[in-house]
């Protein structure tokens, strides 16, 4: 099985990698690029811990072949903070205690980011629909909903400034 060349943008930086065809995007991001925020939970697309943004849409890195991401723009949790400042969604999760053990958090935040990029002012139903594919086994869902709502307000205020 020959390795194939893959070029993509990860967190704003152009990256070139040589990967075998049976490599998933999750393996490429985590093992080759050291982005440990891309968690491997169930590895079969159920838990959502490996969620990253691919051209703005939330996808399972564990179910996406690395080669399928050719030319794509990938954003992981590591790409959200700017100049040492956490992203408002991260801020809200920290401040409101929407983080317990923390394993599902990167996936939750990426799924929330995808939601707020599409719908800046989501209803509770929108938030629930967007996060149904992300499992938290500490069951901190209620606080996450509040955190996403708070982050949405925060982001809108920022946009107005």
């Amino acid at each position: 099985m020959r390795k194939q060349l893959l070029s993509l943008t990860v967190n704003g930086d152009p990256v070139e990698l040589a990967v075998p065809p049976n490599y998933t995007l999750q393996e490429a991001l985590r093992n080759d690029l050291g982005l440990k925020g891309v968690k491997e939970g169930c590895s079969e697309g159920v838990c959502g811990a490996c969620t990253v943004l691919m051209n703005g849409a939330p996808v399972r890195a564990c179910l996406t072949l690395a080669l399928e991401a050719e030319g794509a723009d990938i954003v992981t949790i590591e790409g959200l903070s700017k100049e040492g400042w956490l992203h408002p969604i991260q801020e809200a999760f920290v401040n409101l205690g929407a983080v317990q053990c923390g394993f599902c958090t990167p996936g939750m935040i990426m799924a929330s980011k995808a939601l707020l990029d599409r719908i800046p002012n989501p209803t509770d139903d929108d938030i629930e629909a967007a996060l149904t594919g992300n499992f938290c086994r500490c069951t901190g869902y209620a606080k996450m909903r509040v955190a996403v709502r708070t982050a949405a307000r925060e982001l809108q205020e920022k946009a107005q400034d």
Binding site: G45, G48, P58, V59, R60, L63, A111, A130, T132, G133
Partner: peptide, 10 residues
């Protein structure tokens, strides 16, 4: 179908 972040975009 499934969940938005799993199936709907891919």
């Amino acid at each position: 179908i499934g969940a938005m972040a799993i199936q709907h975009f891919r």
